[in-house]
């Protein structure tokens, strides 16, 4: 399948933070949810993709073109939304449009008007007076008005109420109907992803943990619950992370089948949520860190 975004062996080091050998590919025509805890490197990765940061090593290509060499051409085809407001504050939405519009060859005023209507955005009001939700809608309007083929969003749903989040997902779903568009967005509200994400890319501590079809996560991963007597040095190795109490344990496995074979009916096996996966991956790491020290 065709990839729209392709990161290969990307390294980027900052003070106290590092992206290590990051290789990610985002499939054309699908929605990829980008998850990871705070400080996992989500924003850094998105900035690398937008060429706001340059990698120390490794290559980034978008639409099959090298990002460094074809930056303008690539950005013509990208619509972006950041988690914070990046518009000038002292002007109106119409003025903001006048600033952005000439940058894009495929800018479409009628599309812009359509979203402005849909989101009920005031055109003549100072952007400074917009609420957080309105600012997000304004960003989205601008991002969607030039027929972008790739839509990149950094935490678009954070700080939005459930109704607008739901509306947003509907809009995104409509956008990908023709199969030509790709959506890549980071979020920590993982329930948004249940409804729309085709692929999940999970990074932790600057490292790529996995990119999988959403349903495969349910097939492979499982939350396992059982009595405390089932755990010993060997069985503990079967899990990514374990949470123990006096009454039993709760653990995450990446190999559901194997756990079923080992434990059979002695444990309860449940579907994991993305939050479980994030949480237990972190827990597992703490355990490993302890066992190394």
């Amino acid at each position: 399948m065709e990839s729209v975004i392709e990161l290969q062996h990307v390294y980027k080091a900052f003070k106290g933070f590092e992206l290590k050998d990051l290789s990610i590919s985002v499939k054309k025509g699908f929605v990829t949810g980008f998850i990871g805890g705070n400080g996992a490197g989500k924003s850094t990765t998105i900035k690398l993709i937008m060429n706001l940061l340059q990698p120390d090593s490794g290559t980034i290509s978008i639409f099959g073109m090298d990002l460094k060499k074809n930056e303008k051409e690539i950005k013509q085809r990208i619509g972006f939304v950041f988690d914070s407001n990046i518009f000038y504050e002292n002007i109106t939405l119409t003025e903001m449009k006048e600033i952005i519009k000439p940058a894009y060859r495929k800018w479409d005023d009628s599309l812009f008007d359509q979203y402005v209507d849909m989101f009920e955005l005031p055109l003549k009001k100072n952007l400074k007076t917009f609420s957080k939700g309105m600012k997000m809608k304004a960003s989205l309007t601008i991002a969607l008005s030039h027929h972008a083929e790739l839509i990149i969003m950094d935490e678009p749903t954070s700080g939005l109420d459930p109704i607008f989040r739901s509306e947003l997902l509907d809009i995104l779903r409509n956008l990908i109907q023709n199969g030509e568009r790709t959506i890549f967005f980071s979020t920590h509200i993982t329930t948004d992803l249940d409804r729309i994400a085709d692929y999940i890319t999970f990074i932790h501590n600057g490292q790529h943990i996995f990119t999988k079809e959403y349903y495969k996560i349910e097939e492979e991963f499982a939350i396992v619950k059982g009595g405390p007597n089932l755990l010993d040095r060997d069985t503990e190795q079967e899990f990514i992370g374990i949470r123990k109490t006096n009454h039993g344990f709760r653990a995450l496995t990446a190999n559901k089948q194997r756990i079923e074979n080992i434990f059979g009916d002695t444990v309860i096996i449940e579907k994991p949520t993305l939050e479980d996966i994030m949480l237990y991956t972190k827990k597992g790491e703490e355990r490993d860190a302890r066992s190394y020290s």
Binding site: V31, R173, N174, R195, A197, D198, E213, Y214
Partner: peptide
């Protein structure tokens, strides 16, 4: 996928 409110990959 749109009608069922689920992801396309499903």
């Amino acid at each position: 996928a749109k009608d069922l409110d689920i992801s396309i990959i499903t």
